[in-house]
């Protein structure tokens, strides 16, 4: 009974906060490029209808204040995608602190159910070397994604989103879910579909989470 009262009270407490931000994404016209719910068919920027499952709020807030380039060649559906980076491509808008905070809060409320649970424990040195080998040679991820080599240098292709700072940007569970069932998130990406065994899948997600820009040397 006490728990029920707390639940109801917390619901009332949470409601105004949610309502206060309802529509910030709409006000800022984010839906003109991004998909904000699964029923929308077309979008020209990264799909955000699961942003709350994918991103870390600290990174998202910092990104909204001062954007950074995640996809050097642009989004996969850009008409000029296969022509590579272009100076003509407009940068992502930047927002002042308060707006970035409100947008982050609303984006983090956009979630879809998780399928995998990944421990945040870093890989051992041996596991890391093994997965790095698979990352580069077995699954060829490095061909399309920028990453960090063991010397802390940036290397890799640019057609996929950069993974150089993935450990600060993404959520481990989402990385595993993306690798396991990409069709949950996109009807057609440009990335190959992999069938990893569950243990490799988890280790892969943990490896990606170890890629952080502070490790660049």
């Amino acid at each position: 009974m006490k728990n029920l009262a707390i639940f109801i009270f917390s619901g009332f407490f949470f409601l105004p906060s949610t309502l206060a931000n309802a529509g910030v994404l709409k006000d800022k016209n984010c839906g003109s490029c991004h998909r904000l719910n699964a029923t929308e068919k077309s979008f020209t920027g990264p799909d955000l209808h699961y942003a709350g499952s994918k991103f870390q709020p600290e990174w998202l807030s910092a990104f909204l204040k001062r954007g950074e380039v995640i996809r050097p060649a642009g989004f996969i559906t850009d008409p000029g995608f296969l022509k590579g980076p272009s100076e003509n491509r407009p940068p992502h808008p930047s927002f002042p602190e308060e707006e970035a905070h409100a947008l982050t809060e609303e984006l983090m409320s956009l979630k879809i159910p998780r399928q995998t649970s990944v421990t945040s424990e870093p890989l051992s040195k041996g596991q890391r070397a093994k997965i790095k080998y698979q990352f580069e040679r077995t699954f060829s991820c490095i061909s399309c994604h920028q990453s960090l080599n063991l010397a802390g240098k940036v290397r890799g292709g640019i057609s996929g989103p950069s993974l150089v700072n993935a450990g600060n940007r993404l959520q481990a569970d989402w990385v595993a879910d993306w690798l396991n069932t990409p069709e949950t998130y996109t009807s057609k990406g440009r990335m190959p579909r992999y069938k990893m065994d569950p243990a490799t899948l988890i280790q892969f997600a943990r490896f990606v989470m170890m890629l952080k820009k502070e490790n660049i040397k």
Partner: peptide
């Protein structure tokens, strides 16, 4: 070269 990924599941 290992740069070329497997597309058999795609």
């Amino acid at each position: 070269a290992p740069c070329m990924p497997a597309w058999g599941h795609t």
